[in-house]
Design a protein around this nucleic acid. Structure first.
Lengths: 364, 364
DNA sequence: ATGAAAGCGCTAACAC
DNA sequence: GTGTTAGCGCTTTCAT
C-alpha cells in the first residue's frame, strides 16, 4: 500500500515533477538520447530526436535548472546592489536614475541569459553569501564602501564604476563625467550665463566627486569664480534647501559681505543641479526666490525624471542614459564571464543633454 | 607536466575554489563530519567541530549553493514581475509605489532566506523558463494577463493580488481598496466637499477596477453624482490632462450643456487622483485652471511620492503602504512554501491616509 | 546512432 | 562520535 515512499522531499510536493529519466523511460530511450535530443547536440536520427521531443512535450517535461547549473559550474545569476546611501534602505529605487538602471540591467541580463537578483541597498556580502552568484554589480559605491572588497574577497567578479579601476577581478562602466559637466556648463555659457552655480551631493561616490572636480576645472579655465553648494544628504527636501542656498548668494563658504540686497552682480544666472530632485520642485524653489526661468536664471538638472518635460517651462536635463550604462555593463560582464579573456576592464558611456526651454535665453 | 587537467570546467577558473572534500582532507576528517560541523547538525565532539570549522575558515571555504539547492530540492529563489503595463517595458520602477514595493519585497525576501529575481515587466514565463524559481510574485496583473496562467501551468506557485482568488496554487495579498477609497472620500465630505471628482486609470487591474466600483458605491450612498475621469494610459502627461478634464467640468461622458463659464454649481470642489502622477504637477494643473488649493479645491493623491510633502501646500496622500504589502506577501509566501499546509490564501492590508494641508479647509 | 556510467558538490541515511 | 555511501537531476565522455 505504500504508494511511493517520498525519500528526501518536501512536505508534500503538489506534483512530483517529471524528470529526464521519466521521459526516457516513457519514450523507451535512454537519458542520454533524450538529453541530446532536447539540447540539439550529438548525432541522433531525426526520427528518434523527434520522438524524444514529442514525448517530453507531451509529458510537460521541464529541465531542472539547478541540476544543470551544478553540472555547468555556473548559475547564470548575478547580484545587483546599490552601494550609495547605505542608510536609505530600499528607497534607492525611487530615484528615476536607479530605477531605470535597475530595470534595464535586469532586462538586459535576462536577454543574455542571466537572472538578476536584487540585493537590498547597503546589504553586506555576508547576508547573501549562499547565493550562487557568478558576479555582482555594484552601482555607485561610496569611496569607503566595504562591499566591493567583500565581494572580491569571496572570489566573485565585480562590475562597478570607475572607482574600482585596477583591482583584479573588478571591471567598470562609467559615465563620461567630465564631458557631461562640460556640455552643461558650455551650454550655459553659450546662452550668455556668466555666474553659474552647481548643486552637487556631498557624497564620496565617484560620480559626484568627479562632477565637483570637473566643475572646478571648467571654472578655472573660463576664469569664472567657482560657485558650488554641496548637499549633505539625499532627498528632495535637502536638495531644495541647497538650491535655495545657491540662489540666495554665492557658494557656501563665500563672501556674503554687505547687509541686505546685494543683488545684481552676485545673483547666479544659471543653475546646474546634479543632485536627484524633482524638477518641478526645483523650478518652484527658483520662483519663490524671485527668479524667472529662463529669463534671469537658466536651469538644468542631471536627472532622468520625466516630469521635467511637463513643467512650465520644461526643464533641460542631462541624462546619464541608464539604459546605455546597463547595456554596456552587461555586455561587458557577459564577455568577461563567458570568454574569460582579459577584457579591457572599462567602458565609458557618453551622456546626453536634452535642451529644453528652461536653459534657453528668450528673444535671440 | 600536466598541472591538473581541468575536467569539465570553465575556460580558466581564477581560483579552483575549495570544496568540502578539500577541507575534510586537510582536517583529516570526512566530508560528513565537516558538513555536520558547519551546519551545526549531528553529534560531534566540540573539539572536532571546532577543528573542522577552523580549517574551513582558514581555507576560505564557501559552500557551493547550487549543490545545496540540488540536494534540498528548492532554490530559495523567487521571481518578481510587474504585470501591469506590458508596454511600459522596464519603466515601472519609476513609479514610487512599484519602486518601494519592489525594494521592500527583495529586502524582506532576503531576510527570510529567499533571493528575489527581478523579471522585466510584461515578460513571458517562457523567457525565464529555466530559472529554478520556487514561486513567482506577480504584482497587479491585468485582467487578461497570461502570466499568471503560464506560471501556474508550469507548476509554480503564484503570489499576486486578489484577482487570482480561488485558483489552486495561487495566493494573494491586496490592499483594502474599498476602505481606502472610503477614507479619502469621507475625509473630503467631512471637510465640506460635495462635488468630488475621481481620476483613475482605465486599466483592468484589480485595484483600479475596485477603486472605480468603490467610488461609484460611495457616491450612490451619499446621493452625490458620480464624477470620474478615466485615464487612458500611464504617465504624467496623460494623468495631468485627465486632471484638467476633471477640473474643466464633470465626468467624461457628461452633460456640458451651455457654452462658456458654467462655473459655480458644476465646478468640482475636491479631487482624488488615483493614477500615479507627480503631486507638484497635479497641483500646478489645478492652479492653471484657476483653483486655489485647498480653498476652492481639496486635493488628495494615491501616491507614495515623497514630493507630496514638499509642495506648497503639501499634498494629502493615500498611501498603499508598499512595505506592508511586501512584508505580508513574503510572510505568506514563506509560510506556504515551507509549511506547505493549505494557508488562508489571502491577506488584506489596510492603507493610510496622510492628511496634509491640500485637503483641509482653512479657517475652521 | 544509441546507451552505460561517471560525476558536478553537497547532505542525510545508515553503518561501525 | 565518525566515516561510508547513496543519491539530488542533469550532461558528457566513452564504449558499443
Amino acid at each position: 500500500m505504500t504508494t511511493g515512499s517520498r525519500h528526501g522531499g518536501q512536505p508534500s510536493s503538489p506534483t512530483p515533477r517529471v524528470r529526464l529519466v521519466d521521459v526516457a523511460r516513457e519514450a523507451g530511450l535512454s537519458k542520454t538520447t533524450v538529453s541530446a535530443a532536447l539540447n540539439d547536440t550529438g548525432r541522433l536520427s531525426p526520427a528518434v530526436r523527434e520522438k524524444a521531443r514529442e514525448t517530453a512535450r507531451r509529458m510537460g517535461y521541464r529541465p531542472n535548472a539547478t541540476a544543470r547549473q551544478l553540472r555547468a559550474g555556473r548559475a547564470k545569476l548575478i547580484g545587483y546592489v546599490v552601494g550609495e546611501a547605505v542608510d536609505a534602505r530600499s528607497v534607492f529605487l525611487e530615484s528615476p536614475y536607479f530605477a531605470r538602471l535597475t530595470g534595464a540591467t535586469a532586462a538586459t541580463a535576462l536577454r543574455r541569459g542571466y537572472a538578476m537578483v536584487l540585493l537590498p541597498a547597503g546589504s553586506l556580502q555576508s547576508e547573501w553569501a549562499d547565493l550562487p552568484l557568478d558576479a555582482v554589480v555594484v552601482t555607485d559605491p561610496d569611496a569607503d564602501d566595504r562591499i566591493v572588497d567583500d565581494v572580491l574577497a569571496a572570489g566573485i567578479p565585480v562590475f562597478s564604476d570607475r572607482s574600482v579601476e585596477g583591482r583584479p577581478g573588478a571591471y567598470w562602466v562609467d559615465v563620461d563625467t567630465e564631458a557631461a559637466v562640460r556640455s552643461a556648463l558650455d551650454h550655459f555659457h553659450e546662452q550668455g550665463a556668466r555666474r553659474p552655480v552647481l548643486v552637487v551631493p556631498d557624497s564620496t561616490t565617484r560620480f559626484h566627486t568627479e562632477v565637483f572636480a570637473a566643475h572646478r576645472e571648467w571654472c578655472a579655465e573660463h576664469g569664472l569664480p567657482e560657485r558650488a553648494v554641496r548637499v549633505p544628504e539625499a532627498g528632495n527636501g535637502p536638495v531644495v534647501r541647497a538650491v535655495e542656498t545657491a540662489l540666495a548668494g554665492g557658494p557656501a563658504g563665500d563672501r556674503r559681505e554687505g547687509g541686505g540686497g546685494s543683488d545684481g552682480e552676485d545673483r547666479p544666472d544659471a543653475l546646474l543641479v546634479v543632485a536627484e530632485a524633482s524638477p518641478p520642485l526645483v523650478l518652484e524653489a527658483a520662483r519663490r526666490h524671485g527668479y524667472s526661468v529662463p529669463d534671469d536664471l537658466l536651469l538644468a538638472c542631471v536627472s532622468e525624471d520625466v516630469t521635467a518635460e511637463h513643467t512650465e517651462p520644461p526643464v533641460t536635463t542631462l541624462s546619464l542614459r541608464p539604459e546605455a550604462i546597463a547595456e554596456a555593463g552587461i555586455e561587458h560582464l557577459v564577455r568577461v564571464l563567458e570568454q574569460g579573456g582579459r577584457e579591457p576592464a572599462g567602458t565609458l558611456v557618453p551622456t546626453r543633454l536634452d535642451v529644453r526651454a528652461s536653459s534657453v535665453r528668450r528673444h535671440g
